[in-house]
Design a binder for these strands. Structure first.
Lengths: 214, 214
DNA sequence: AAAGCAATACCACGATAGTAGTAATTCAAT
DNA sequence: ATTGAATTACTACTATCGTGGTATTGCTTT
């Protein structure tokens, strides 16, 4: 089966060129094309193409906003951003919004087809520069276990902090660790003192980054 | 200035080959090589090479553990994993640990040099398959604002939830919103009911993902 | 017009959490 | 050998939270 593709692109010429390219290539089938995000949002959830090529700059709603809306509606569909230059921040935003990969517009037709196959098969084609941005962002999230703070705490204290983060009550923590509730109290008092806070939520926000507020 | 490189690789032959390749190529300089992680951990922080090539499978400590220790000590240094096959999970772990890119061992010398230049210049060379894993993981972190749950809550309730996540007391929230503490109480009771929880921490863990526990 | 929800507000009770002071034991470091 | 931190544990008091019941107002939706 050919890979079914939809195009969102405001410039008529380019849209037509892409359509012709795709339909003229074996294994590819362009099943729809739209000149704006609104139209695409209305139609794409019904036809669920395998891959959608999205121009990042669209007249009304941007390509990013468009993906943001569409991706939750068609989880199976792969969205590939088309961008003019290597605008890392914009591409990064698009990936956050749910895009699965991107290509620069100047990419040769054969490489474009390659990239479509790649996203279709579960890859995320991107330059190593963008990759670095993504990796860094994700490394930050992983290691936001504020090492300075955590280092202050003893083994036991860290252990208890873990349970605190799960929302357990003192009694429950005590039972898990076969300790007296009063001991847990003492540990938590010490934890709070070391972290310079005075509530569970403050402690968690201090050690693991804030949740709701970046 | 040539890019200074250190190698961590347990097989003598390969280590020597790499050293020769690097020193024989213009713009590259292999300034150190180690056959195990422990030795590398002791020395690399002192010499701070531009790039370190790390074999993922090492006799004692693994390459991943090694990067985990070293990366915080030399933030400027770029770590590049060398792996035999496209073992996505392992590579993924390595990236979490702080690696900046990877290459498969079968890569041709010229491409290896290219990749080194790429990491050195702030890229993260990786296949599109790995890129996808990284992107997905990071998309999860971004959108873990459990939309199903949040949608249940009214505007006011979400607002209050934000303050809850900051660790404010009922009284403090009330003051911020110019409402009675009792009103906050009521809202929070409703929030808890909608989320099917019965404590602040549980509510936060439900809506924003759990922090300390993946 | 009635039903329903969102938003506001109060009272009262019991549970949980946070604060303060104190102390014994153990283990590591000086 | 002594100091110091970690771990354990207790008592007592206060503050904050969680829960239940109830009520008014205003806006939608039927």
């Amino acid at each position: 089966m050919a890979i079914s593709i939809a195009i969102i692109e405001d410039q008529d010429e380019i849209r037509n060129m892409l359509t012709i390219l795709l339909n003229g290539s074996e294994g590819f089938s362009c099943i729809a094309s739209y000149s704006n995000a609104e139209e695409a949002i209305a139609e794409i959830p019904k036809i669920k193409p395998d891959v959608v090529l999205v121009d990042i700059h669209l007249p009304g709603q941007s390509g990013i906003a468009c993906i943001n809306t569409l991706k939750p509606l068609c989880a199976e569909t792969q969205f590939m951003i088309r961008t003019s230059l290597e605008d890392t921040d914009t591409i990064f935003e698009a990936l956050k919004a749910g895009a699965n990969g991107y290509i620069v517009k100047s990419t040769s037709p054969s490489k474009l087809l390659d990239a479509i196959v790649e996203v279709y098969h579960g890859g995320s084609p991107m330059s190593s520069q963008i990759a670095r941005k993504v990796v860094s962002s994700f490394q930050n999230n992983e290691s936001k276990k504020n090492k300075t703070e955590v280092a202050l705490l003893s083994k036991r204290e860290n252990e208890i902090l873990q349970f605190l983060s799960k929302g357990l009550r003192y009694k429950e923590i005590a039972d898990k660790l076969f300790l007296s509730t009063e001991t847990i109290r003492t540990h938590i008092r010490n934890i709070y003192e070391k972290l310079q806070v005075n509530s569970r939520t403050d402690a968690l926000n201090k050690v693991f980054g804030s949740k709701g507020n970046p």
